Simulated scan of single mutants.
Amino acid sequence: MTRPTQAADPPPPLRDLNASEHTVVVDPATGPFLQGGVCTNCALAFFPTRSVCPNCLATKIDNHRFGPVGRLYSWTTVHVSSTRQVPYTVGYIDLPGDVRVLTTLGGELTALEPDCPVALAVDAAGGWTFQPILEEDAQ
């Protein structure tokens, strides 16, 4: 009896996320922003920064600032979790440059509505959220 030929082991996953890169940078002059990337080959913008473009696999990536203001696309409140204290609210934020980020939401959560403006907020420990921009904040 002959053994069926097995395919070679699949290649390991591509380690394309730059874990050492800071994802949130606070510039004293302009405030906080997300540090992402733009592929120099196909112009795809993405967050967080990667060492390989997820679209064309090019490796020449330029740093790009996103935020600090975006628009809320959608959100939900999580009531059951085995990894963190509940409840907490997460949402997708659309940033200029065609980038959508999934993040924790903070601030006045009752003010959330589709397409509302949100701003990046950074706490003293370096954690970050997006919070709704309230009418009184905009004035």
Rank of each mutant, 00 (worst) to 15 (best):
M1T: 02
M1N: 01
M1S: 07
R3G: 08
R3C: 03
P4A: 02
T5D: 06
T5S: 12
T5E: 05
T5L: 11
A7Q: 12
A8T: 10
D9N: 15
D9M: 14
P13F: 04
P13R: 09
P13D: 03
P13N: 08
R15M: 11
R15C: 12
L17V: 12
L17N: 12
A19C: 04
A19W: 05
E21R: 15
H22K: 14
H22Y: 07
V25P: 02
V25E: 03
V26T: 07
V26F: 03
P28K: 10
P32L: 01
G36T: 09
G36R: 04
V38Q: 15
V38S: 14
T40I: 03
C42H: 09
L44A: 15
L44W: 12
L44G: 14
A45H: 15
F47S: 08
T49K: 15
V52F: 08
A58R: 15
A58H: 15
T59I: 08
T59E: 07
T59H: 13
I61D: 08
H64T: 13
R65T: 01
R65Q: 09
G67C: 07
G67I: 00
P68K: 08
V69H: 09
V69I: 03
V69Y: 04
V69A: 04
G70C: 01
G70N: 02
R71T: 07
Y73P: 07
S74R: 11
S74C: 09
W75H: 15
W75R: 13
T76Y: 07
T77R: 12
H79A: 05
V80E: 02
S81R: 06
S81I: 02
S82N: 12
S82G: 13
R84Y: 06
Q85R: 13
Q85F: 09
V86I: 02
P87F: 05
Y88V: 03
V90N: 08
G91V: 01
I93A: 06
I93F: 08
D94T: 01
L95F: 11
L95Y: 10
P96C: 04
P96L: 01
G97Q: 08
G97A: 05
D98P: 06
D98R: 10
L102K: 05
T104D: 03
T104K: 12
T104M: 04
L105Q: 07
E108A: 09
T110G: 14
T110K: 14
L112R: 11
L112F: 08
L112A: 07
E113M: 09
E113A: 13
E113H: 14
P114G: 05
D115S: 10
D115K: 10
C116K: 02
V118Q: 01
V118I: 02
L120E: 00
V122D: 00
D123F: 02
A124S: 08
W128N: 10
W128D: 00
F130Q: 06
F130N: 06
F130V: 04
Q131V: 04
P132N: 04
E136N: 00
E136L: 00
A138I: 00
